Simulated assay, not measured.
Amino acid sequence: MKCPFCKHPGTQVVDTRENEEGDSIRRRRRCVSCDKRFTTYEVVELRMPQVVKQNGMRSEFDEEKLRTSFTRALHKRPVPTELVDAAIDNVTQKVFAIGEREIGSRQIGEMVMKELLKLDKVAYIRFASVYKSFQDVGDFSDAIDAVKNPRRRQNEKK
């Protein structure tokens, strides 16, 4: 750590303290050259992966876009906000847990569909109709049949 006063590269840590939440560390340092003291803070920096869209464009992961997707699918559905927040947290944690620098938007869409299926079947169908670009009534019928018969849904994945 360079001294901010004289730019000398040598400093000593005089005191170290963790904050109350345990998510950062405060260090008092002393420059070995000019003997001045200063404070530094260490915090964990977590980076979400970049989202690779179907057209190849990349963008930052945006939890608000995720929330918008859930909100649109669940519009006027009797699902408590706490459950929606938990579902969004689940998707966010799964995206982060993958540990890659990039993730496909399709992968995120599949995660959202799984969470919506747990929350509300109508919301699942709404999201699936946009996500899978349903072309006609038959697509809706197939999706409804898959929701009614979970074994069929598992066979479709194979």
Rank of each mutant, 00 (worst) to 15 (best):
K36Q: 14
A128Q: 04
R153I: 03
R37A: 07
K36L: 10
T68W: 01
F127H: 03
V32P: 00
P9T: 06
E60F: 02
N149M: 07
A73L: 07
Q154D: 09
V137M: 14
E156F: 06
V95N: 13
R72M: 12
G10M: 00
K114G: 07
I103G: 10
K148R: 12
T92A: 07
R153N: 12
T71I: 01
K158N: 12
G99P: 07
D136R: 06
V122Q: 11
R37P: 04
A128V: 04
H8P: 00
R17K: 13
C34H: 06
I88Y: 00
D139Y: 03
G22K: 09
G99V: 09
C3R: 08
K121T: 15
F70A: 10
P80G: 09
D89T: 13
M57L: 15
E115P: 06
E20C: 04
T40Q: 09
K36W: 02
Q107C: 05
C34R: 03
E60A: 15
K36M: 08
E21G: 02
E18Y: 02
K118W: 00
G104Q: 15
R126M: 07
I108R: 06
R151K: 13
G10D: 11
S129Y: 00
R26N: 04
R29G: 07
D23L: 08
C34I: 06
E115Y: 07
D120S: 12
K157I: 11
T68M: 06
E20R: 14
T11Q: 04
M111I: 01
E102Q: 12
P49D: 06
P49T: 10
L46D: 15
Q154I: 11
F61W: 05
A97S: 13
E42N: 03
F70T: 09
M113W: 03
L66P: 01
Q154V: 10
G56K: 13
E156L: 13
I25Q: 07
A146R: 14
S69T: 03
T16L: 02
K94D: 02
K132M: 07
T40G: 08
R106C: 02
S141E: 15
V14T: 09
I103Q: 06
R153H: 12
T40L: 11
Q12M: 03
C6A: 14
S133W: 01
D142C: 08
N19Q: 01
L83W: 03
V44T: 02
E21C: 00
Q12E: 10
A86Q: 15
Q54G: 08
D139N: 06
K157V: 14
C3A: 11
S133T: 05
V91H: 11
K118S: 12
I98F: 09
V51E: 03
D136V: 10
R26S: 09
K158Y: 07
L66H: 06
K121W: 03
V95L: 10
D142W: 04
V95D: 13
P49Q: 06
P9D: 12
K157Q: 14
M1A: 13
V32L: 09
V91R: 12
M48T: 10
C6V: 08
G10I: 00
E60D: 13
G104D: 15
I98R: 14
R27E: 06
C3V: 08
T11A: 11
M111H: 01
F5R: 05
F61T: 05
A73F: 03
P80N: 10
